[in-house]
Amino acid sequence: MNVLIDHLGDVLGALGTTLVMFLIAGVGSIVIGVLVTVARVSPIPLLRWVAFAYVQFFINVPLLALLVLAVFALPDAGIIAPLEPTAIVVLAVYEAAYVAEAVRSGVNTVAVGQLEAARALGFNQLQSLRLIVVPQALRAVVQPIGNVMIALVMNTALAAAVGVVELTSEVNKVNLIEAQPIAIFAGAGVIYMAIALVIGLAAGWVERRVAIVR
């Protein structure tokens, strides 16, 4: 650990990058994931098909391939964006597919009768989804979404492969200087574990607060 403390400034800066990527991509993936789920259970066949294709595409293509594609192929197509925002967008749209799968399993927990009651009261489809279905679906999948968020933190490390200087990339650089791989990478591992632990605890706390009394 001492080696990492010797490079504390750089390591903390890189940890900050990792956390910023996680927070923005995390919020983005939850928002996109919920929208994809809504499309997936909507009454419009085209929307349902697009949402299904979205989930299938991102679940079946490796994240690293997407990152490489976005960082090296998009500029070739004339779309030039800074490295870190590009990686954040790719992480968000990728994890959104997993969020969508989790939320969809939550949608299935909402009793059909409640939807009938909503329709009988005069709610339109969108209101039924927004007021009745999505709030209950999300409450049912807090822990699964927490797991997706933990996976997201781990996946931010892949951004190192396309040149983003986040935690893994930075400790790799420290190792090139110090040549103490066990201490350095174990230290980085402990930091990732600590972040995952915090997310897991937060998910548990949120779940207890929003759980539906049954």
Binding site: A111, G113, Q114, A117, A118, I132, Q136, I212, R214
Partner: peptide
């Protein structure tokens, strides 16, 4: 009014 009440659980 339904047989199974169908109140919104949340």
């Amino acid at each position: 009014v339904f047989q199974s009440f169908n109140l919104f659980a949340h």
